[in-house]
């Protein structure tokens, strides 16, 4: 415990009571902080689920090139069925957790997409806001087993 400092002889007079204006800012900031905490909680829970889905896809991703693009596409369909059997539900709402790449411009949030590219199959995941996730970074930092 630090020693208490001395009051200066010419210290400022005691502060006056807090006005309504600063009080309103404190109340609004507190409410905003609580809203942010609720938002964060909901996002973390969903994001955790997407990260597990992505981790499973990355763990089971074929490492070697396929003999042909057609074979890669066929494998991707089979692989999708296996992944869907493990995690059928999209954590952000209705729809599947995994999809094959399609011509759609915008994919639903919390989705892991399998993308046949020539003789390979790439993976791209989309987070709770539908933004593309950094798949390489996710691969380096798998999610914890449990929250």
């Amino acid at each position: 415990m630090r020693p208490a400092a001395h009051m200066p002889a010419n210290a400022a007079p005691p502060p006056r009571r807090m006005g309504r204006f600063p009080l309103a800012i404190i109340i609004l900031t507190t409410l905003y902080g609580l809203w942010a905490a609720v938002l964060s909680y909901r996002v973390v829970v969903k994001q955790q689920a997407v990260r597990h889905h992505l981790e499973l896809a990355l763990r089971t991703q074929p490492r070697h090139p396929f003999a042909s693009a057609r074979q890669a596409r066929r494998y991707a369909r089979e692989w999708l069925r296996r992944l869907e059997a493990r995690y059928p539900q999209n954590p952000c709402g209705a729809g599947p957790a995994y999809r094959l790449a399609s011509g759609r411009r915008r994919l639903p949030a919390c989705t892991v997409v399998l993308i046949p590219q020539g003789h390979h199959i790439a993976i791209q995941a989309y987070d709770t806001q539908g933004q593309a996730m950094d798949t390489v970074f996710e691969g380096l930092n798998p999610p914890p087993r449990h929250l």
Binding site: L39, S40, V43, V44, Q47, Q48, R51, D127, T128, Q129, Q131, M133, D134, F137, E138, N141, P143
Partner: peptide, 12 residues
């Protein structure tokens, strides 16, 4: 880079 456990939380 957003925190890995959160990602983006409101749009971008």
């Amino acid at each position: 880079e957003p925190d890995i456990q959160l990602g983006f939380v409101w749009g971008r």
